[in-house]
Amino acid sequence: MSNVLPPPPGDLSYSALSPLISKVLYSKENIASRVSELGRQITADYAGVGRDLVVFGILKGVLPFQADLTRAIDLPLQTDVMTISGYRPENGQAPERRPPGVVRITKDLDIPVSGRHVLIVEDMVDTGLTLNFIARMIRQRQPASLAIATLFNREANRLALNLPIRYSGFDAPDDFLVGYGLDYRELFRNLPYVGILKKEIYSL
């Protein structure tokens, strides 16, 4: 089967999507280096907890980061993933006429976390609403400790002010980021770098 896409120009190998990105913010190498640093830091901090470290992420955006981070942590640990139902508005209806939904866990953890050290991995913490829900629920299961590692942290829009974010890769700028798990309408997740989506794509 012939390749329908044109040959990749350098690092921007996803030519179908690259015209929609105004700038590559963090290259593959930048991200790999920062993830390794975070891995070393976490290894040092959790060196004494034995096998009691549970690292889990919230699908789907976290997949590349979780895969790289857990491999950068030089400790015995258990990993898991959780899926929650994302907010999906029904188009074509005025907001006040739509019945409100509530977030649901569509895939819970298979590993028990009670009495263990829990590290939640997230791709980006923006308002913190998702993580607030997850953290509240995990606290009810009484872990020994709870911390959050995020690749991108954007504090300007934070609503949940009580999140235990201990590890943060980059301070995210005030732009719409895509790539390395971050999506716009489920696209761009597979880009190896993180870029800024052109504004005209998601707004007027």
Binding site: A16, L20, P89, D126, D174, D175, Y184, R185, I201, S203
Partner: peptide
């Protein structure tokens, strides 16, 4: 406005009713 656009776009909500077709015609 730009925060809301970005924030609500994450949830699939457009702040403005018009959606501009991106260059290349890729329908998002």
């Amino acid at each position: 406005r730009k925060d809301l656009q970005r924030l609500l776009a994450r949830f699939g909500i457009a702040v403005s009713s018009q959606i501009v077709t991106p260059p290349g015609g890729l329908a998002l």
